[in-house]
Every structure is written in C-alpha cells, then in structure tokens.
C-alpha cells in the first residue's frame, strides 16, 4: 500500500479534531491552551504534506509552504509566551485556572 496525500490530510484532520474536542470539553485553561497548540500543529502537518506533494518542475518540493510553517511556529511561540503570561496574571488575581470560575468581564 502506498501513501497518498489523503492519508496525511486525514491524520492532520484527526489531530485537529482532537485539539478541537479538547478546547470544547476541558475546563482547565492551560489544557485548553495546549489543545490550541495541537490544532496549530495539525495545520502544519497538512501544509508540509502539500509542500511535498506539489513537486515543481525543478524536481523539488514547494518550499513556500515550509516557509509558512516556519512563520506559524514562530508566531505560535510568541503566542504561547503572551498567553501564559496572561494566565499567570489571571491566576494571581483569581487563584483559579478553571474557565467556569472566570465568567465575569470585570473584577
């Protein structure tokens, strides 16, 4: 059995679904944040699979997609830093990481 693009897209979609389900089902804000990272990585996997699938006339993969993955990883790293700083500030103010306890807009 040979691997096709659809195999990679299926695995990437399932990883995205797992992250999506985690965001919907879990109540701990740090776990929700980890599940966001899972969804970003699912997008990265499909981008790299498309890059390898579209071999150009020079016989090389399409490197534009890999540059986009590079940008996604960079932005995700910045996002994690800011998000975790917000979570720490939130924890100092409310002593909780459960999203059900953080329902008021102003405190």
């Amino acid at each position: 059995m040979t691997l096709t693009l659809n195999h990679y897209l299926l695995v990437s979609g399932l990883l995205f679904t797992i992250g999506f389900a985690g965001v919907l089902l879990r109540r701990n804000i740090i776990i929700i944040f980890m599940c966001l990272e899972l969804m970003l990585n699912a997008a990265n996997l499909s981008l790299v699979a498309f890059s390898r699938f579209n071999v150009g006339p020079d016989g090389l993969p399409n490197f534009n997609a890999q540059v986009l993955v590079f940008f996604i990883i960079t932005v995700a790293a910045a996002e994690v830093a800011v998000g975790l700083a917000i979570i720490v500030a939130l924890f100092r103010a409310r002593q909780t990481t459960n999203v059900e306890d953080i329902s008021s807009m102003k405190f």
């Binding site: 040979t2 691997l3 096709t4 693009l5 659809n6 897209l9 699938f53 071999v55 090389l60």
Partner: peptide, 9 residues
C-alpha cells in the same frame, strides 16, 4: 489527493 507522492528529481 488520492495519488502517491511524486518522487523528487
């Protein structure tokens, strides 16, 4: 998408 990955040249 139901095709195998082309070989690199």
């Amino acid at each position: 998408g139901d095709k195998p990955f082309p070989a690199l040249n």
